[in-house]
Structures are given as C-alpha cells and as structure tokens.
Design a protein around this nucleic acid. Structure first.
Lengths: 228, 228
DNA sequence: CGTGATCTTGAAAATTTTCAAATAGAGTGG
DNA sequence: CCACTCTATTTGAAAATTTTCAAGATCACG
C-alpha cells in the first residue's frame, strides 16, 4: 500500500517531519505501508536486504538470542521510532511486533539516497540515533545485574511511566504494561517468576497497585527510583 | 593547544576524515587538543556546557552511578571514537580516561555549525552514532544478568580480543586488558571477586592463559563464545 | 463456561555476593 | 639493587539472592 503522509499519526515527530511537503512526497512514493500482527517479525537477524522503517503505531522489540537460545530484548520501539541498521551489510537483530503495528518501510537504497539528497534528513536521523543510543544506555543502566531484581523492575516501571506519559516531564500515574512478564524478564535479564515476585513485593511496599496482569497505578512514581 | 590534523593518528578513521583538507582545517581552528591522565574526567554528568571530542589516542569510559553509588560502565571509547551528547541540553553521563589519552575537543556550537555546513559530516556522525548504538546493544547482550558471570566474562574477553585485533575479522590471540578487575566488574554488572573467580575458572578450563593481571592469551578465541 | 495461556506462589537448589584474609605487583626511597 | 608500602588481585567460607521446578490461581476469549 502506498503511503499517505497527510493522515500519518507521527507526521510531526518522525524523522521525515523535517522534510518539506514535496521532499516527503518523493520519499513516500518510494516507501510502502506495512501492518504487523502481534508476534510477527519485521526483520530477522541475518537478513541481508533488510530495509528501514518508521513505526507509526503499535510497538516493536529488538531482540537477540544467546547461545542457549535465551531471548534478550535490546530495545523497545515506540511510534515515530526508526528501525534499521544503517551502514551494516545485514541485520544483526530480530525486530518483532509487540502489539498490532503499522509502519512505513523503505528499501535501504532509497533511504541512503534520501540522506544524501536531504541534509536535514541526515541530521534528523542523527538526532534519532543519538536518542536510541541514550535509550540503550539507559536500559544498560536499569538492567544492571549488580542491582536487585526488585530495583530493576522498579526502574523499568518508572521508565514505562515516563513513556506512557504524554507530558514530557511527568511520568504517568496509571498505564498498561505493553509487555508480558516473559518479555519484561527478557528485557531485565531475569525470569518470569522473579519479575512476578518483584511486582508482588513492590505492591506490598505500597509503591505500585496492580489492576489485572497489565494495569499499573503509581501514587508516587518517584519513590520507585529508590526502591531497594 | 591548536590542532594539527596532518599528524593525527586517526585522521583516516575519525568522523572528520570525510571532510576536505580545507573544511577540516576550518574545524580544526575551532577545536583544541587536550590531554587527560588516567582517571581524569573529560565531561561530568550534569555539565550544561559539555562539548564534543574525538579520541585520538588512549581510552575512555562512559559511566553512570546508581542510587547506591555503584558505578556502571555504559561504553568504552577507543581511538577515532566520538563522544558528546548531541541534542541534549546537558551531559547525562561521566566520561573518564581509562589510560593517558589525547583528544580533540570542540564546543557544542562549533560542531552544530559544522554539521549544518557539511552534510558529509552529518552522515559520518550518523554512521558513528549507529556504530555506538550497536556497541551499546552488544554490551547489553553480553552483560545479560540471566547469563552466568563466567559466560559474561568470556564474552567480554572475546570482545576485547576483537577490539585488540587490527585485522577486522580475526580476534587477537594475545592482548592486555585495558581495564582493572573493578572496571570489568562495573562493565559486566558483577563484583571484582566474581570476575577474578571467573578468570580462574576459564584458565582452569584451558580457554585462557593469564600473563600477570592484565595479560591474556587465547589459543582458540572462538571457544570462549560457548563457555558456560 | 470451558480451555489454554499467563501469572502467582512455594520450597529446594544453585549461583553470586559479602566479608575476611592471603598473595602478588608496582613504584619508591634508601 | 633491595626492602618497603600501597594497591590490585586471588582465594575461602558463610550469607543472601535468584533460579529452578512444581503446583495453583487468574485471565482472556471462543
């Protein structure tokens, strides 16, 4: 399906927002729209012709598998996020939909041509890449094995509260987790059971209220940050 | 001290290599050379006027501290690497020399002007940022708390063997660790003692030979990757 | 309302950390 | 050049955390 930027929910915030109408139109003609069901794979590690994509709705995970076949989630991608390994000859990680998702996908050569043709796009992608780098380092910090599982879960909940919030400075006090227990375990480097026990403990401490398996309420999100 | 690109050891590989002689000269006049002793801080978290730097020799670490004051190493920077948080209003992490180091440093506004003036520079920085992102995700994968400390140490040694090698595809079989046990622990999210015990165990398994505290020999580096 | 999947809880087993002490190394001043 | 001292590393044993294995409890949905 061709792209229709006029109705794109992330037209203000995605990297392509820096282009003029005409430039964006030209890029849009090169790309196409794709829908993914929960669990479907966008790119698989080893693909040598993987392209690039901007997520317009839904959520993705970037994952790797260790020798034992254990999945580790390396990144979450939210709407307006951009995925694809620029300058790498093939994809090094799997990218899978966490929820029903819509994307604009582009062939590698089209993105490269657009970068060369539109300096503003290169700069916008640089900005986004730096944000991804920061997010990756943040995940590295909150998944520190030296910290207890409980504090890792608490730090993750705080991050999710920030992500769920639409105001930039204040975390949301109520939201639904986009991940299963197993995915949270894969992100934090622990087990389903330990995540579950940590949530129970945080609830017992009065830091969190659970509404079903996915719903989270936080009366004072900041207190999560100094949870043991 | 002013910059002298003609004798720069990374003039072929750093981001500025994509500039013409004249462009690079102009940028060089805006920057200056700085030397750091081991342990000295280049940028500190919270600095609001942190700039940017290309490392020409030595090694740096990018670190954060958790609430308990525990250091976590988020990244290692090698020669030709570029540090500085573009698009962020202040530095979010500390950057400290692991060894005597030399750098070219630039003010934020000069780099921003150069990005706008030279599209090739924006593209080169985008490439480098993507490499940093990949390195960060690789660290996330090898420091997975779900894996045993021994396998994390083994994966780290393999990474260091790749870094130490000057041929792109084959890891070095002999090299010196640039990190103390404490720094390795901070990188892998464990303790000094556990790192030490893991090295002893890997040596007992015949995967590694130690020469003093820092020297490492690997008869078959690839075997490290499936070390339990 | 089943039914399968996801989540929670319990108790034993395993790993890792902590605390304590011994050893090895690097640098210094005699 | 050697003894000394300070730091970094290794090793040991107990304590703590986490994982594993095994059931239950809940939830989403057809």
């Amino acid at each position: 399906m061709a792209l229709d930027c006029a109705h794109c929910p992330v037209r203000e915030s995605a990297a392509c927002a820096v282009l003029t109408e005409e430039e964006r139109g030209a890029l849009a003609r090169a790309g196409r729209r794709q829908t993914l069901q929960k669990g479907e794979t966008l790119f698989a590690a080893g693909d040598d012709a993987a392209g690039f994509a901007t997520l317009t709705s839904g959520a993705l995970k970037v994952t790797s598998f260790d020798e034992a076949g254990q999945e580790r989630i390396l990144a979450l991608v939210h709407p307006a996020g951009f995925v694809g390994e620029m300058f790498a000859p093939f994809a090094r990680h799997d990218v899978v939909a966490l929820a029903p998702s819509e994307l604009c996908i582009f062939a590698a050569r089209d993105i490269e041509a657009a970068i060369d043709a539109h300096p503003a796009l290169a700069k916008a992608l640089l900005r986004r890449s730096q944000e991804d780098l920061h997010a990756s380092r943040h995940l590295l910090a909150i998944s520190n094995p030296a910290a207890s599982v409980k504090s890792r879960v608490a730090a993750f909940l705080y991050s999710m509260a920030e992500t769920a919030s639409h105001s930039p400075c204040h975390p949301a006090t109520q939201f639904d987790l986009p991940l299963t227990r197993g995915e949270m375990a894969g992100l934090l480097g622990t087990t389903i059971e330990s995540v579950s026990r940590s949530l129970t403990a945080l609830e017992r401490d009065g830091l969190v209220t659970r509404n079903g398996a996915r719903g989270i309420s936080l009366s004072d999100p900041a207190r999560l940050l100094d949870a043991a």
